[in-house]
Amino acid sequence: MSEFQLRELHDTEFPVPAEFQDNIAITSLSRIYNWSRRSSMWPMLFGLACCAIEMIATAASRYDTARFGMEVMRASPRQADLMIVSGTVTKKMIVPIVRLYNQMPEPKYVLAMGACASGGGPFKEGYNVVSGIDQFLPVDVYVPGCPPTPQALINGLIALQKKIDGQSLANLDDVPWYGVGPSDPVPIPVLAADIIDPRQMELIRQQAERTAAGVGAARALPQAALDRVQIERARAAAAKGGTTAIAAKSSAPSEPVDEAIAAARLARRMEALARKRAKDAQQ
């Protein structure tokens, strides 16, 4: 162990004589535990799509994750600490991914690499695409990019190391694995007519009942989004009345529509203001 690293570990009020500081460190359990974990973070050898190529490039000689103790990529989830979700998560693939995650021993971390893993990316609208791995797994670090450059991935890994440094054994609520017993596994999605997340089962059942009874949606959709759709529809209808689609598109008569937006927005703001005032008055 180098002198620099040992000095870095000092974490106590007890003074260590200067001549011993290169040989002795007095530190807290959290500190040394976090330090050893973040310095040997073994990623799972697991690539999904394009980002996996950049992940390999990051591990290769030019960028070299061995500098962070991360070069030991484990093919088995049982030996891995970190899942780098490198690429588009599809509905067909999320089932094995959740299984792999459940098989990783704690403490475990997830890094969403690139636009697809973070939120669906360019393929978000695709019928077989999950809009981000965070719909199923807890994500620790998001790395933007399509694909992120190796520098960006290394930056994300350093961010993860910082996050680990901040975790504490003393605070049992900090991360699940410092609490009592292992945390619950993530329920495994089911491939049916479309993918089914077991956590949404109740909502799906309600919706099916409501559809059968011929009443509306089971979940309240945000008013703002519905407003916007209505406005878009009104504009599209107005545009259809024009001479050609293109000409109408650019010069759509939009004043009444804009008024409608403004009125709706104002009404919502006034409502919110009233709520806030009522709350203030209570206090």
């Binding site: 719909q135 909502l203 979940r219 989004a225």
Partner: peptide, 11 residues
């Protein structure tokens, strides 16, 4: 926002 399940799913 406009999907009942808030997900990219349709049953």
């Amino acid at each position: 926002e406009l999907n009942v399940y808030g997900r990219n799913v349709r049953y």
